[in-house]
Design a protein around this nucleic acid. Structure first.
Lengths: 350, 350
DNA sequence: TAGGCTAGCGCAATCGTTTGTTCATCGGCA
DNA sequence: TGCCGATGAACAAACGATTGCGCTAGCCTA
């Protein structure tokens, strides 16, 4: 059992409060040098660590953050988490990781648990932003930041990419390559990323004077499996597309698998572009052309926003949006180097 | 600000303790049905959630676990974490994730912080098991479980694979294929996985009546970069090996990259086998032959061991060791299917 | 009608810190 | 000698929940 203030007080023949002030380096503290050194020696000797629970109760601050994501096994979210922890740890915060598996009830129970635990702030990069549990969060004055996906309800702090532009750039790349029948494996239209990237897809068509065939847009979810299923469907139509824009790299990977199985050569028969530039995208063969976004920075910026909100006690209603960069690999252009080519780099904040 | 017991007590005209007993469904509680229903209505209406901090202070239990790993961005550790969370969440525990980046000082500061926070248990899958911080953990009666790597100090609870056997099986596979000059990109000899897999490598040679060339064993660390560097070195010797056993899949991946750059065809000029069977190993081309270990189960079993230790308050000094399975892919045998072949499956516990 | 039993709650200590306030002591100065 | 201002440290009230114990009615029984 770790040593307590009271025990130390008994050993040093002083009151617990005196030990506390010495341990916390109370600036306005007047104390005899003898007493101080006696206490300091005791502190060092016992390696006293104040009980964080008791401290949290008194100070109403736990120094704990939480990150809520679908699945840390997905490299996108793993990188995101690292971004958060990398700014949190130096500031003395620990970070809870909560996986929802995309299940609303798991998100809800996690959020409840976090609330009971009085975590100082929450970073949410899962779905179900319109869930009552998220509204509760807004209702409580518990600070939180949305990442990657945002909700149109309220002006929640947000960090993510410019998905409209990203969808547009991705599609424009395919158009530049001469494609005219371009499919889209879309995200859910209820999720900001899904809706905006789809809009970008359409905008690129319009800008190029093309009309998008509505029959070539299929909702594909976000996992490799769901992407594969949707791709199978999309590639089975009578006049299949010669290129597809997949809403995420995972979906693109599923698509590549299915396309190969169905006898499509990539990129000759089917060009594929993804989104996010997860590490896996550059490792598979052929490498997946994709829109690069700074995933780690999503996390670190969100973490900073959250910590500022906590420490300065200010609302910090900011929205940070990074500009995605096109990375061209073999899944759209044959005969490239493996690492891909970066087009340009940028970021903006409102 | 969330509602407290005291406030509810005032609204229901009872003492806080009565509310507490109703909320906690105190079994031996005698209470008038009218009072009970009045309180229950109030609880539902306000959505009362007991303050976890205060609760933790009184009950001396936080319902928080921590997982300490080098880097969650490494798919091995991400899967491990999921295993832990999947058993912890249903039991009402939240899980802190601490990345050390393989830095002893970060491990130390994390462990200190966890101790101050009075987490109920810690799962350690990082290096530096002989660090004072780990000894402290043993000294405190705070429950913990080692995963993947263990220390020869004491009989700490442990979950991992049979690394000696794994190293032996991996090397035997290469020998079976006719290789006689087999290199080993080894882990650190101070780490159990490194030492045991290396011993297995040697044992397989002995069993086959071969002598291992000490010049073909190079320490390679555990990351892709360090593996690549070591591989470059190993493949530059006058009479390079025709096959290598890499201590982990990440090292194997780095090796494959370097080998290709140096003009080796895989597997014709150089066969490569890794260890762990991370998802990436089956996705790259050529697929990496490897020793499969149940990573997710490492986490779930470790979590269960830890939770039993916490809830039953028993030491639970157990060591669980899984038998690794050989998965053959194209990096050792040309012309296989992509998914690989599983040899057999098993697990044992002391 | 007195005594005892029980149902139904309230009391108060406790967990370990933090922090505003009070209190005693001592030296200096008039 | 008497008073005053520092100085150095103790006091005590929080923070919010849990829990063993005690207390007060009311009812039953003898």
């Amino acid at each position: 059992m770790p040593v307590t203030l009271k025990e130390l007080a008994a050993r040093a023949n002083v009151h617990p409060s005196t030990i506390s002030r010495v341990a916390n380096n109370d600036p306005g503290l007047r104390i005899a040098t003898g007493t101080r050194s006696r206490i300091e020696a005791l502190l060092r000797e016992t390696g006293y660590q104040p009980n964080g629970i008791a401290r949290g109760l008194k100070l109403r601050q736990t120094n704990v953050l939480a990150v809520v994501i679908p699945d840390v096994t997905n490299p996108f979210f793993a990188a995101l988490f690292r971004g958060v922890e990398d700014v949190a740890a130096p500031r003395g915060f620990n970070v809870l990781l909560c996986n929802t598996d995309g299940l609303p009830e798991r998100q809800r129970s996690h959020l409840q648990s976090l609330q009971a635990r009085r975590v100082d702030g929450v970073i949410i990069a899962s779905s179900f932003l319109k869930d009552p549990s998220v509204r509760d969060l807004r209702g409580q004055k518990r600070p939180f930041v949305l990442v990657n996906r945002f909700s149109d309800e309220g002006e929640d702090p947000f960090v993510g990419s410019d998905d409209l532009l990203g969808g547009q750039l991705a599609t424009a790349h395919l158009i530049d390559l001469g494609h005219t029948r371009i499919g889209h494996l879309a995200g859910k239209s209820t999720v900001s990323t899904g809706m905006l990237r789809r809009r970008g897809y359409l905008a690129a068509h319009t800008a190029a004077g093309l009309v998008a065939d509505p029959g070539l847009v299929v909702e594909a979810g976000y996992t490799e499996e769901s992407g594969a299923a949707a791709a199978r469907h999309l590639l089975s139509v009578p006049d299949p597309p010669t290129a597809v824009f997949a809403v995420t790299d995972m979906v693109a990977l599923g698509t590549a698998d299915v396309a190969r199985q169905m006898g499509f050569r990539i990129p000759e028969d089917l060009a594929i572009i993804g989104y996010n530039d997860i590490p896996l995208a550059s490792r598979v063969s052929p490498g997946i052309t994709t829109m690069h976004v700074p995933i780690h920075e999503f996390g670190s910026v969100a973490g900073r926003l959250l910590l500022d909100q906590i420490e300065n006690d200010e609302p910090a209603q900011r929205r940070v949006r990074f500009t995605p960069d096109l990375i061209v690999r073999e899944s759209t252009v044959a005969g490239l180097t493996r690492s891909g080519r970066i087009a340009r780099s940028n970021s903006s904040a409102e």
